[in-house]
Design a protein around this nucleic acid. Structure first.
Lengths: 206, 206
DNA sequence: TACATAATCTAGCAACGCTAGAATAGATGC
DNA sequence: GCATCTATTCTAGCGTTGCTAGATTATGTA
């Protein structure tokens, strides 16, 4: 019980199997949908019996939650990359495109990220850091803004999420997607400059 | 087999039972969540055996779909009412508020309206008219607009849906909801009206 | 080698969606 | 009023699900 090498190996094995389960769940979900992701199917995939899964995740929903957290991590990274690539100007557009590309390329993953409702509010301490990291990438976009940046970020996120969801559930035809992004980006970048101009105009009037 | 009165009565009974099932599903869903809406539970509620449910809706999902369609009808009516109440000016705000109020007051209903992905695209002929009616209320808002009104409507819907979903799944704190609506409405009315005001200001300058 | 602990499996429970075939109720013809 | 035929409804059960208690095996320790 006191050999550290053995303990480390066990931990590695455990994490490897955990990752294997998550990978299998994602693959099956993308190919056949979440209802096909059953505990029996997953145990078959990893060649272990069902109780092993419960030892790792506690429940089927625990597996989905783990997949969702992984999804937020990846989405956050994708947005960070997009934001940093475009230093100035069209960072908003770059992030918007990255977000919607993520949602479109992994629809099942995106679905599970929002289908499970959080048991705790977003701001809560128990909220996984991966979620906060993802949202922080949007916050960063509107950081240096005169008006309340938090509400603007929330609305931008809501717009992206709405587009992603309504596209995924076939309410929006995929054809006009580029135009949607263009107009959305305009909405969230115009106000800055245009309001400025307008106020200038008023000033010059007096 | 040829008595019309009897046939009519049977039809009425059928529709009444159908409505009863939908009502029970909605009530259980709002109180305990959709997983609690089981076929056995619903048959208990209407005091019939399970096969009767399948005669009406074909499957459990058929029940949910019927509830969803009813939801779209109600949402459409709520938006129409809000839009017509405000003839001029803040129709956008009125509709936005009505939309989010609907989503907040019947979260389970709103959930099922978008959790079932359509088997056919939105524009398709087989799309229930209730869905088109609801969206037409948003289209109407931006009907007389210089730029492409369809994309604007889609984005407005996406914004509302995003806010509704992120609030429902506890990503957004409910506290700032009023401010969110205010900024959203500004985003979608500014271009129109403010440009107008700006031109007025210029006029009065001379 | 003997023991103790940790890891894993077998087997099964209750509940689920769904359906075939039996049983009942209801309308029609005489 | 009775028989018949159809439509409606129920009983009973199949296969699958998430999940778990208790038996079983593997693994590290002395």
């Amino acid at each position: 019980m006191a050999n550290p090498r053995i303990e480390e190996r066990k931990l590695r094995d455990k994490q490897a199997r955990r990752a294997q389960i998550i990978r299998a769940a994602r693959r099956i979900a993308e190919l056949e949908g979440w209802p096909s992701v059953t505990v029996r199917r997953l145990s078959d995939e990893i060649s272990y019996s069902q109780p092993v899964l419960y030892a790792h995740f506690g429940s089927r929903e625990g597996v989905l939650a783990a997949v969702a957290v992984e999804g937020f991590q990846e989405l956050g990274l994708a947005m960070e990359k997009a934001r940093k690539r475009m230093k100035r100007g069209s960072a908003v557009e770059s992030v918007a495109t990255a977000y919607l590309e993520f949602a479109a390329s992994s629809p099942a993953l995106y679905e599970v990220m929002f289908s499970l409702s959080l048991n705790v509010p977003f701001g809560h301490a128990a909220t996984p850091p991966e979620l906060r990291f993802a949202f922080s990438q949007i916050l960063e976009l509107f950081h240096e803004q005169r008006s309340k940046s938090e509400v603007t970020s929330e609305l931008f996120w809501a717009g992206l999420h709405g587009i992603a969801e309504l596209t995924r559930t076939k309410r929006f035809p995929p054809s006009r997607q580029k135009e949607r992004v263009r107009v959305l980006v305009e909405l969230f970048t115009f106000p800055e400059s245009e309001i400025g101009k307008m106020e200038e105009a008023k000033e010059s009037c007096r």
